[in-house]
């Protein structure tokens, strides 16, 4: 049975080059792993609030995967609560990059 691992990928905002890859733990801990780890991963990206299935090209270009768009979960009917169409300041320049990745061969 495979286990889902999740990573924080930090990239250079100008070049897109991967600076650091860290595995996310359930305590919120971040453990740095070798960037090469990504080559063995199937990558799913969170884009515009939905998880997109990985494809080969995306897997190779993992550093270019960003979270953007609105966060899901806003209750539009809540009094006084409204939804903004976009997140502030999160565009191509965001240094923090997150995506899901599944290590298919890892068994626990």
């Amino acid at each position: 049975m495979s286990k889902l691992h999740k990573y924080l990928v930090t990239t250079d905002a100008d070049t897109g080059e991967v600076i650091r890859v860290e595995q996310l733990g359930s305590a919120g801990d971040l453990t740095e792993v070798a960037p090469e780890t990504l080559g063995a991963l199937k990558v799913a990206a969170v884009v515009d609030g939905t998880v997109r299935e990985p494809d080969a090209a995306q897997a190779e270009q993992a550093p270019g995967v960003f979270i953007s768009g609105e966060l899901p979960g806003v209750d539009e009917e809540a009094p006084g609560i409204f939804v903004s169409g976009e997140l502030p300041e999160v565009d191509g320049g965001a240094p923090g990059v997150f995506f899901n990745a599944e290590l298919a061969e890892t068994r626990h």
Partner: peptide, 18 residues
């Protein structure tokens, strides 16, 4: 501003951790 740029990713990260 630096914290602001990271905040959305952080919130997603916290959510995805569990």
């Amino acid at each position: 501003r630096e914290a602001l740029a990271l905040a959305p990713s952080f919130v997603r990260l916290a959510y995805e951790s569990n």
